[in-house]
Design a protein around this nucleic acid. Structure first.
Lengths: 193, 193
DNA sequence: TCTTTTTGGAACAACGGTGTTCCCTTGTGG
DNA sequence: CCACAAGGGAACACCGTTGTTCCAAAAAGA
């Protein structure tokens, strides 16, 4: 995919774009509960023939990579929307957490299956990572975030709490808003100065 | 394994016991990084023939179940060692965290691969779970733990932070003691009243 | 409507993992 | 030292997944 993210680039027909999305979304949902699901399962979940899946993603690794790329992009978008440079650091962190929480299943994949991260260059520091670390440092300098906690660790905690919150909505039927509220509260306490 | 955990029950020769352990340990280490590793890989990692693996664990599911049972038992032992009923709740929680941290790779398996939990009855409330919840409630009643945080969520946070700490030692080369210290500090802040 | 995309399904070969059997070698313990 | 327990390795059939090809049906779009 060498083309930019320009909206009107004549890449593929609207029909094809929709099928691609269907497959991608179904794959995310399915693989987030069973990372070893077969392509046949993915096809069925997407309401599509197995042949069609292969038409869009010749090999399994292509599908994996596409999912990785998709998630990476969504993470970037979510990060931008949180406007990390604005206002007090704790509030920016809360906005970020809310945005990430919206990513749902996708988060779990990134955390669960290292493959997705590896196959899409997510392993190294992404712009999002850098932005978060910058935010955390800013908070420490301004005295609103705990200066005695390593920023890298703080970031890890952010992801871990998000993951835990999602686990609860998935396996315990906890309502999304309740899980998110708990998550935000705990994160705030853990990072407070 | 119908026999009890009595130490001197003549179950199998010392040799067989050692081989079983070798396979079990190798499997834990290997599967914690790649849950889809083949039995051949496990055998190789254990320094043992593939045939031998089948001799001890006829089917793959038998190996999985054995790992699950092994971990469950270790969790129970660790929980008992932490003596959750003694002293202030926050300190008991810290002891528990330290004990669990010692379980290493095994923790990640329990978290990563739901199968291990399912195939060994870990899904439902274990004695360890009940003991932890009791501890958390005790802390809340005595005013040493945050009464506004759901105990179930606190427990989830405990596991999530442990997992995050182990991730850092595994992938970032953070020394174990450093990771544990960060983990304890964050957990204390997150659960403090 | 008619043409062009797009899809579904069948059939196929290849591959890797699994579970089993058999036999020979190693070594543990009496 | 010897018998018996234990492990290694080769060979085998079986199965599910993968990736491919081909053709007919369905759906878009002009």
């Amino acid at each position: 995919m060498p083309k930019g993210t320009d909206a009107t680039t004549t890449r593929e027909s609207a029909t094809r774009a929709r099928t691609r999305r269907a497959i991608l979304d179904a794959a995310v949902t399915l693989l987030s509960t069973d990372p070893a699901a077969s392509l046949g399962d993915v096809a069925e979940a997407a309401g599509v023939g197995r042949t069609t899946v292969h038409r869009y993603f010749p090999e399994r690794s292509d599908l994996i990579a596409a999912i990785g790329a998709d998630i990476t992009e969504r993470v970037e978008v979510a990060t931008n929307r949180a406007r990390l440079d604005d206002g007090p650091a704790p509030e920016a962190l809360e906005r970020l957490c809310q945005e990430y929480f919206e990513l749902g299943d996708r988060l779990m994949l990134l955390y669960d299956v290292p493959q997705f991260a590896e196959w899409s260059g997510f392993e190294q520091e992404t712009p999002a990572d850098r932005a978060i670390l910058a935010l955390l440092r800013r908070g420490q300098e301004q005295g609103t975030l705990d200066p005695h906690t390593d920023t890298g660790w703080m970031q890890e905690v952010l992801w871990a709490l998000l993951y835990a919150a999602w686990l609860r909505t998935r396996d315990h039927g906890t309502p999304r808003h309740a899980a998110l509220t708990q998550c935000l509260r705990t994160l705030a306490k853990a990072t407070a100065s």
